[in-house]
Amino acid sequence: MNASPLLRLTSLTKSFGGVMAVNQVSFDVDHGSIVGLIGPNGAGKTTVFNLITGNYRPDSGEILFDGKNIVNMRTNRIVTLGIARTFQTIRLFQNMSALENVLAGCHCRMRSGVIGAMLRLPWQKREEREALEIAVHELEFVGLRAHLDQAARNLSYGNQRLLEIARALATKPRFLILDEPAGGMNDYETQVLVDLIIQIRDRGVTVLLIEHDMNLVMKICEKLVVLEYGLMIAQGTPAEIQKDQRVIDAYLGAPDEDDEDF
């Protein structure tokens, strides 16, 4: 087995004009686990994601993915290494069909370029077919095969989130990070999402997710990391986090009826 974690953040720091969005954050994500990143709004969760995916550069600190430092690497390189993401504010190609959106994810696993396309060489045609096959398969996996022709903007919010996941999966990631995947979903859609995330993990993809739905987080995460004002105030199993006094004060609040079915 792999003893070292898949992802290791060490003293990661990022400030925006004096605001310490992420302050000396360190945590590990183990191979094959589902880890939740939680905390109040503005705690710096999305910023951590943007640092991992290379959308932002950290002021200091280290990000090791599979033992390799990915700080200063460009986003598309990081995706090619095996980290895929979804966005908190949905970023689909809104005017394109669901299928085209997922094909975008296939891109980084394809080779053909301008010449191959112009001459339509046999291997280029084969590659195109394989990409279509993968894209359709991923749409089927998230339950959107029937919507394959529809423009992304015409899908429901919940389905748009699923489509983002399909596009991310098409990059063949080893590590998937989901930013509030249940945002805008109703209870039924959320339940479907929970099953989906578990299936994704069972495919061998490690998952890190930000989520406000405590039910969901407590149910599927093996480990939780809690941020507040950019600082990591706790990490541990869901049971440990629920008992942590700092977390209760900062985020979970006094136990109330919402917590009953944890």
């Binding site: 995916t53 959308n55 460009r74 986003t75 598309n76 390189r77 995706v79 090619t80 895929a84 993401r85 966005f87 970023r91 689909l92 190609f93 809104q94 005017n95 394109m96 085209e100 094909l103 975008a104 994810g105 891109h107 980084c108 394809m110 053909s112 370029g113 301008v114 191959g116 396309a117 280029q124 590659e127 195109e128 990409a131 596009r167 991310a168 098409a170 990059t171």
Partner: peptide, 25 residues
């Protein structure tokens, strides 16, 4: 109708999402 043509379209639509999908914009 190729990988190249689609890549340009993704970049036109949203270059952040394109890079986030692994395309070198």
């Amino acid at each position: 109708n190729s990988r190249f043509g689609r890549a340009l379209n993704y970049i036109r639509e949203d270059d952040v999402a394109a890079e986030g999908s692994g395309i070198d914009a």
